[in-house]
Amino acid sequence: MDVSATKRRLLKVIFLGDSGVGKTSLMNRYVYKKFNLQYKATIGADFMTKELRIDDQLVTLQVWDTAGQERFQSLGAAFYRGADCCVFVYDVNVTKSFESLSSWHEEFLKQAEPADPKAFPFLLLGNKIDVDDGHSRAVSEKRARQWCDSRGSMPYFETSAKQDYNVNEAFICIAKAALTNEEEQEPYFESISESVSEVETRGGGGCAC
C-alpha cells in the first residue's frame, strides 16, 4: 500500500455568513448528525473536526464556525489564516443575508490573504429551503447561481440543516474543494504529514454533480 495514501490531510474550512443563517446548524447536522432549533449565538468561533475519506485519501476536516455579527469581523484574521476552503452561507428566506455575501467575500480575501485569491476555493450554501415549504423564499436559485458565476463559478448547494437535505453532499464538495487548495504546510500542524503525492485537481464546479 502506498504510504502517502494512508497519511491524513488536515483541511481547514471556514464558515462565514450573517447571524442566524444556520452556520452552526449545518455543521452540527454534518458532524454530529443532530439538529436543534435553538443554538446559541456563536461568539468568536467554534471548532469541530470530522474525518472522512475522499477517493482513498484520508482527510480530517477542521471546520470553523464563526460569529455572524459584523462586530466580530475585525477579529476574523486569527480564525481565517491558513484556511483551505471558505464556505459562505445565506438564508434563502432573508434577502439581506444574500446581499451581505459580497462583503463577506471581500472581508475574507482581505483578512486571510490567500496566496492566489482567484484560485482559492469558495462555496455557497443557500440554507433553510424547508421553511414554509419554500413559500417564504426571498432569493431565487437563479439569482444565487448568477452570483456564483460572477465569482468564478463557485459551487452552489441548496440545503436544509433541519431536514438534512443536501448537507452531506455539500460537505463532500467542501472537502474536495479544500483538497485542491495548494497551501503550504500550515504552521499549526507540523506533526501531521502532508506529503501526499497526488492531490485532487478537479475544478470546483466538478463536485456539483
Partner: peptide
C-alpha cells in the same frame, strides 16, 4: 508548541464573563 492562539477560546470566556 501547539499554537493554540488564546483568542480561539478566551474571546468567549472574557467577553461573556464565563457564562457559557
Amino acid at each position: 508548541t501547539t499554537k493554540v492562539n488564546p483568542q480561539f477560546y478566551a474571546f468567549r470566556w472574557i467577553t461573556l464573563l464565563l457564562t457559557q
